[in-house]
Design a protein around this nucleic acid. Structure first.
Lengths: 240, 240
DNA sequence: AGATGAATACTTGTATACAAGTATCCTAAC
DNA sequence: GTTAGGATACTTGTATACAAGTATTCATCT
């Protein structure tokens, strides 16, 4: 089976990091079904490695609430539609907090950085590099979040980021298959967010939130409620 | 050196869990100073175990943002006053979200559970079991947070909880040394929170927040700005 | 005194072994 | 056919070994 997580993002990764990236994608796409019991020995055999990197990977997935450790083995918890709603609850909560802080802060540098990222997103669309587009999307939001220099908000973001990353990757892959004009609207939403930060416009920020979250969340939930769409998202071709 | 973390909370804990509890307390109390470099072999020798449980512990501390992994060893990041403020930012954000949800939810069971915990807190004060009081305080808040059945909010809480736990333990130990009438006020604050949940009283909730956070945060920050107070918090006698 | 290169000592990632505990299977007895 | 106990197979936590990479130390040369 072709790796679900983009290989070029794992160039210098340890074996443990590689295993966790692959397992995370399988769990989220339900290639591994919920309630499945996974053991260290079983996974070590499957990935042809020792238990050491598997242990690392399972510890990480436990922290991310994707698996639940039992006395023997871990149980796959996975992601439901409700969980996706909840992730967006957290995201909204975090980004609201961040934007509130940004209202009292000089934003020149941040806006420059965001402009750059938007330009790169446009180039990624032009060359149909959808995975790259997804990573840039996430980096856009991360750049905003980290700009307020709040260590615990950054940590909170880091905790939900791996699952966010997978959800975005999968939903963007799906978009390519279905309606690639979506990307223009996603980029427009990001430009709106950038402008609202630049102008410190509270109404515009709320509007940008509404558009971005409504768009992203609806699409992600649509995928998760439909087995066929899930399959397409899992197996869509990655343009290079 | 006497263990900083209460031994009775580690009865069935693995060696890795024991090591992480002890290291976390040392880092937070600055028994291990910020910027110190720790290596697996060094800690394995000190704790007289193999590198395996040390690896587990260092991975956990990395996730909790208390250490930063380097090419060789990890650098102690520790906790500053700013970080404590930020933890309370997160706490306020989380509990605000939770109380908003509780306004639209039946609370009978929750209130009963909170009443029980307050009774137990009173008993803990009576017998001067300050560590037990601290754990009950944390359980009180966790019970509220988990009552809305929001998996990602629970996860978020779990991520900041270990550090919260240490901060509360240390500040409560310090209170015992300085002014044990504080405990009556802490209990009164918790009763206020419970009543505000029971009556779904938004104004009362905000008032309870203001009192509780103002009280807890001021005390914690006072300790961290004073080396002598830090020493007292670290070394205070635990009544059994 | 300073620079350079080799030797040494350290690090971490991973493999493998072992002990202790738990779950499953099989056989014998009823 | 059912039950119980022993044997077997599995689990995880931890110890130890090894390889590869990095940092430090020391000796030699200029």
């Amino acid at each position: 089976m072709k790796a679900l997580y983009p290989e070029k993002r794992l160039v210098n990764a340890s074996m443990g990091a590689r295993v966790v990236a692959e397992l995370r994608m399988r769990i989220i796409t339900k290639a591994i079904k919920d309630e499945t019991v996974l053991t260290e020995n079983q996974l070590a055999k499957e990935f042809q490695v020792s238990r050491s990197p598997i242990r690392e990977a399972l510890r990480t997935l436990t922290t991310e609430n994707l698996v639940r450790p039992e006395r023997m083995g871990v149980v796959v918890v996975g992601i439901s539609e409700k969980d996706i709603e909840e992730i967006y609850d957290i995201r909204l909560m975090v980004e609201s907090f961040v934007f509130e802080r940004l209202l009292h802060k000089d934003n020149g540098k941040l806006v420059g950085e965001l402009e750059k990222l938007i330009e790169m997103m446009k180039i990624a669309v032009k060359y149909k590099d959808i995975d790259e587009f997804s990573f840039l999307d996430l980096e856009f939001h991360e750049t905003i979040i980290r700009s307020i220099d709040h260590r615990y908000i950054s940590m909170l973001w880091s905790n939900i980021k791996p699952v966010m990353e997978c959800l975005i990757l999968l939903s963007m892959r799906y978009r390519l298959e279905e309606n690639d004009k979506d990307f223009e609207r996603v980029i427009a939403n990001h430009e709106l967010i950038m402008e609202s930060i630049e102008n410190k416009d509270t109404d515009l920020i709320n509007q940008a939130f509404y558009k971005n979250f409504n768009d992203v969340q609806n699409k992600v939930e649509k995928i998760w409620s439909n087995e066929e769409m899930m399959k397409i998202a899992r197996e869509s071709i990655e343009f290079k």
